[in-house]
């Protein structure tokens, strides 16, 4: 967390030799390939097994292993219709909507607030700049657990418990130190000449922010946005503390965790439920992998 990783991604144009490449050749390729394939299979098999199971009839999931599917394939979509519908008591559709409703403001709010702050830190001189920046940077290491109970008491006292506001506000706050740090680093790399030229033309900080900074900032905003989206979508702890268990506010991870706790052997529901919950993050990840990796390389893993 919280520290720049000393790596850069070089342009990958010319086919060049690398230590790894040499090491691999010398290791006589078959062994290297076999080792890579073994790791890849080990990493994929658990997910694959559950995916196959989610399309098998309940009775078969519970009596035979998923690998028997290949000698005796029977498929059904019943598990998925059961977890989505209300009659099964799972009602994932409602929790799915909640997750989206939680995520959108939880990404947009810290992103805009952090962009403003990062701009001030990067391009305006004011007393106390370095100290304040260092303090915010240091806040990245505070574990969420330390803040939860007092925050819950604040939410009780202003009477917003059991609403989306608790999750929006807390996710937005927790994201700020990392977001400010990432965006600040990115903004510092923009040539000072650009900003000075705009100032000479008589532009104020507001129009510089919108006309010069924002267009250049898109990749950094995208990197942070994906990071934060995955974080919020996958969060369990914050939701458990603030959202309550009902289908009004709780996100899909919470319902899946409850299902695993109360009906731990209902594999037909658990398997389908797990895949409904991972379809969104996996899609986002596959589409925007480039930005996500850039975000990882630039910074940090919070929590």
């Amino acid at each position: 967390m919280s520290t720049a990783t000393p790596v850069t991604t070089p342009p990958l144009k010319a086919e060049k030799i690398s230590t790894a490449g040499v090491a691999k050749k010398r290791l006589s390729s078959p062994w290297a390939s076999i080792a890579a394939i073994v790791i890849a299979v080990l990493w994929t098999l658990p997910t694959f097994g559950l995916l196959v199971s989610s399309f098998r009839p309940e009775r078969e999931i519970k009596t035979t292993g998923w690998w028997t599917f290949f000698s005796d394939p029977t498929t059904t979509f019943e598990n998925y219709s059961k977890v989505f519908g209300e009659e099964g008591g799972v009602n994932l559709a409602a929790f799915f909507v909640n997750s989206l409703i939680i995520c959108i403001p939880s990404v947009l709010i810290p992103m805009s607030i952090a962009a403003l702050s990062a701009y001030a830190f990067a391009w305006i001189k004011f007393p106390g700049r370095n100290v304040l920046f260092l303090m915010i940077f240091a806040l990245q290491i505070v574990p969420l657990q330390v803040t939860l109970i007092p925050l819950l008491k604040i939410f009780v006292s202003i009477d917003i418990t059991g609403t989306f506001w608790t999750l929006w506000l807390s996710h937005a706050t927790f994201a700020l130190p990392l977001a400010i740090y990432l965006l600040h680093n990115f903004m510092r790399e923009i040539p000072a000449g650009l900003i000075e030229a705009a100032r000479v033309d008589g532009a104020g900080h507001v129009s510089i922010f919108f006309k010069v900074m924002l267009p250049l900032l898109t990749p950094a905003l995208a990197a942070f946005g994906i990071f934060q989206f995955l974080w919020v979508w996958n969060d369990l702890l914050v939701a458990l503390v603030f959202a309550g268990g009902g289908d009004e506010v709780a996100p899909i991870t919470l319902q899946l965790a409850n299902l695993s706790g109360t009906r731990g052997t209902a594999w037909h529901l658990l398997s389908a439920g797990a895949f409904v919950s991972i379809i969104v993050p996996v899609t986002v990840f596959l589409l925007l992998q480039r930005y996500f990796v850039r975000g990882l390389l630039a910074g940090s893993v919070k929590g």
Binding site: I113, L116, S117, F121, F126, A172, T173, F174
Partner: peptide, 27 residues
């Protein structure tokens, strides 16, 4: 400039003070 900087920082500092620093010390 100074005023602009403090205005830009206001929301973040406020949220961090109430939502992170105070709860941390309280815990």
């Amino acid at each position: 400039d100074k005023v602009v900087a403090y205005l830009y920082l206001l929301p973040a500092v406020l949220m961090l003070a109430v939502g992170l620093v105070y709860p941390g010390l309280r815990t």
